[in-house]
Simulated assay, not measured.
Amino acid sequence: MRRMPRSFAAFLLSASLTVSLQGQQMNPFTTLMQKADAHAAAHHAVKPALSPNDATILNGAVPVAELQRSGIKVVPWTTNDPEKIRAMIRVGADQGYAIDGLISDRPDILQRVLAEERAVSPANAARLKNFNVSGHRGGRGLRPENTLPAFEAGLDSLIDTIETDTGVTTDHVSLIWHDQFLNPQSCRRADGQPYTLENRVYIRDISMPDAQATFICDKLHFGADQKNDLALSPVAVAFAAKEKLMSPYVPTYAEQLFRFADFYAEYYKTGPGKTHPEAKARAAAAARVHFNLETKVLPDRLPPAVAGAQDVNVPKEMFDNHTVSPQVFVDTLCGAIARHHLESRADVQSFDFRTLILVEEQFPKIPTYYLTDNPKILASEFVPAALRQ
């Protein structure tokens, strides 16, 4: 029997593989990060990372090992239950890999479980050596979220990264808050006047000085372990006095957070906290802590996959976009990072990938984190066409 020419055989093999691949739908997380990586590389930007919902890690939807082989870090959000934290830490244990870190409202619990898992064996200790512990909104399970005391609680837990959220005020400052407005669930007016959803104040409609002169965000609403006793936050109290804030619980902003981390380190290195049993560890952790800063910008149109999941009890207008443009977000937040020369310690994360594209193009030294939830959204108009499956 006459042999088929090698070149023709190779052609047939290539064609059959192409047909096979076309018949399969690529993993949406792989597609997203391949395209994001290509975009970042084209602009000489830092390799992007993926920050998926923890459920998509546990159900195997995110191909962690595959992404890591291409240099993509995977840092999921937001896990608080001790046994679920343990399950997340054990992902990949049988194959010798691990997720790169985890975001938690309870960094104290995360640190405890991580220490237990590292102690299981030398191999486990090696696998988890560089595991990144990130405090969600500082440490929302311990103090009212996104406040100086919450960031202090996270630093007390020796976190590697402070995860937080930003909006943009009228004077173009990166105010730290999760919602588009200062939420009355967390915030009250300092003058005692009623503050409700009906008279809510959007971040884009207030200046930073006015926000700090008007609101105190110390309300408790996240479990029994969340406390607002100022005796638990001595560094925040001292820093607030230094910055002439009316309360440690006034809304803060990115550049103030950067100063706070430095202040915290000095507080335990040379200041009143230097005799604390963990002073050395706390000072060292704060001196190198990273900042994972989310841009809380909504796209102009929410896709059905998102809009359909909206709580029917929440007024529709609360889902409308009351934020500034992605470009203004990038100019404001990345400008603050650059002014403090923190490109190596600050990341920008977002569900709005338009923002991340701009960061990669205009501030290539600042790493980007692609936040994801439902993988179906990755094929929707929610994702810019250049990154869509």
Rank of each mutant, 00 (worst) to 15 (best):
A254H: 01
E255C: 00
Q256H: 11
Q256T: 02
R259A: 14
F260Y: 04
A261Q: 15
D262G: 01
F263L: 03
F263T: 11
F263D: 00
F263H: 03
A265Q: 09
Y267G: 01
Y267M: 05
K269I: 03
G271Y: 04
G271Q: 07
G271H: 02
P272L: 08
P272Y: 13
P272F: 10
G273W: 01
K274S: 12
T275Q: 11
H276L: 02
H276C: 05
P277G: 09
P277K: 08
E278D: 14
K280R: 15
A283F: 08
A284W: 07
A285V: 10
A286D: 10
R288P: 04
R288C: 04
V289G: 02
V289H: 00
H290K: 14
H290S: 14
F291H: 11
F291M: 12
N292I: 06
N292C: 04
L293F: 12
L293V: 11
E294Q: 09
E294P: 02
T295G: 01
T295W: 02
T295D: 01
T295F: 00
K296H: 01
K296Q: 06
V297K: 09
V297E: 10
V297R: 06
L298G: 03
L298Q: 14
P299Y: 01
P299V: 09
R301V: 15
R301E: 15
R301M: 10
L302Y: 06
L302F: 07
P304F: 06
P304A: 05
A305R: 01
A305I: 06
V306N: 04
V306T: 11
A309Q: 15
Q310E: 08
Q310T: 08
V312E: 02
V312P: 02
N313K: 15
V314W: 13
V314R: 05
P315D: 13
P315F: 04
K316W: 12
